[in-house]
Amino acid sequence: MKQTDLREQWEARINDYRASGLTAEKWCAENEVTTRQLWYWLRKFRDSKESSVRPPQWVPVNVHQPQENTESLLLVKVGAAVIEIRPGYNPVLLSDVVRTLQALC
């Protein structure tokens, strides 16, 4: 018997066993197979189903970028450098950066 034929035969047997509602021992006795064979094939089909699970797929995500309020944006140019200043800026830090840029120019 070919491997594919044996696999198909056991797939049918397992479906029959599951649909029967019988215990494994009773079903095996009625179908002239050992419980060891039944457990082997149950495990084999369970393992093959787990290995045939499709890999995860990427899901597209749309990220909404809030629009900037450019009306409150101030650009300061010192030499080739351009500094964007937004509401809530640190004036001491800005002063230090401007002084440093002036020293480099």
Rank of each mutant, 00 (worst) to 15 (best):
D16R: 07
A24K: 11
L6P: 10
E32D: 15
G21Y: 03
W27R: 04
N15E: 12
L22H: 05
Q3V: 15
A19T: 06
A24N: 06
W27G: 00
A29Y: 12
D16N: 03
R18I: 00
D5V: 15
T4D: 13
W10P: 09
I14Y: 02
L6H: 10
E25S: 12
Y17H: 04
L22S: 08
A24P: 04
N15W: 06
G21E: 06
L22R: 10
Y17C: 00
W10E: 03
I14F: 03
C28Y: 03
D5W: 14
N15L: 06
L22W: 08
S20N: 02
I14N: 01
R13L: 15
R18V: 00
Q9F: 15
E32I: 14
T23S: 10
N31F: 05
E8G: 11
T4K: 06
A19M: 01
N31R: 11
Q3D: 15
R7C: 11
A12M: 13
E11G: 08
T23R: 10
Y17R: 04
Q3P: 14
I14P: 06
E8C: 01
I14V: 00
E11K: 06
A12K: 11
Y17N: 03
L6K: 08
S20G: 05
E32K: 11
N15R: 00
D5H: 14
S20T: 09
D16W: 01
E25A: 08
R18E: 02
A12R: 08
L22P: 00
R18P: 01
R13Y: 13
E11D: 01
A12W: 11
R7G: 09
N31H: 12
E30A: 05
A29T: 14
Q3F: 15
K26Y: 05
E30H: 04
E8R: 10
L22I: 03
A19H: 07
E30Q: 05
R13S: 07
C28I: 04
A29C: 13
W10D: 05
Q3L: 15
Y17D: 04
C28G: 05
K26Q: 06
A24M: 08
E25H: 02
N31P: 03
Y17I: 02
K26I: 08
Q3R: 15
I14C: 04
A29P: 07
G21S: 11
A24D: 04
E25D: 05
Y17L: 00
K2H: 15
E25M: 09
E8N: 10
A19R: 11
D5K: 08
A19L: 09
L22A: 01
Q3A: 15
D16G: 08
T4A: 12
E8F: 11
D5C: 10
Q9K: 13
R13E: 12
L6C: 14
G21M: 01
R7V: 14
E8L: 07
K2E: 14
E25N: 01
D16L: 02
S20L: 06
K2P: 13
D5N: 11
Q3W: 10
T23W: 02
G21A: 09
E25L: 06
E11P: 05
Q3I: 14
Q3G: 13
L22V: 11
Q9L: 15
A29G: 07
A29M: 11
L6Y: 10
S20D: 07
T4L: 10
E8H: 03
E11W: 00
W10M: 02
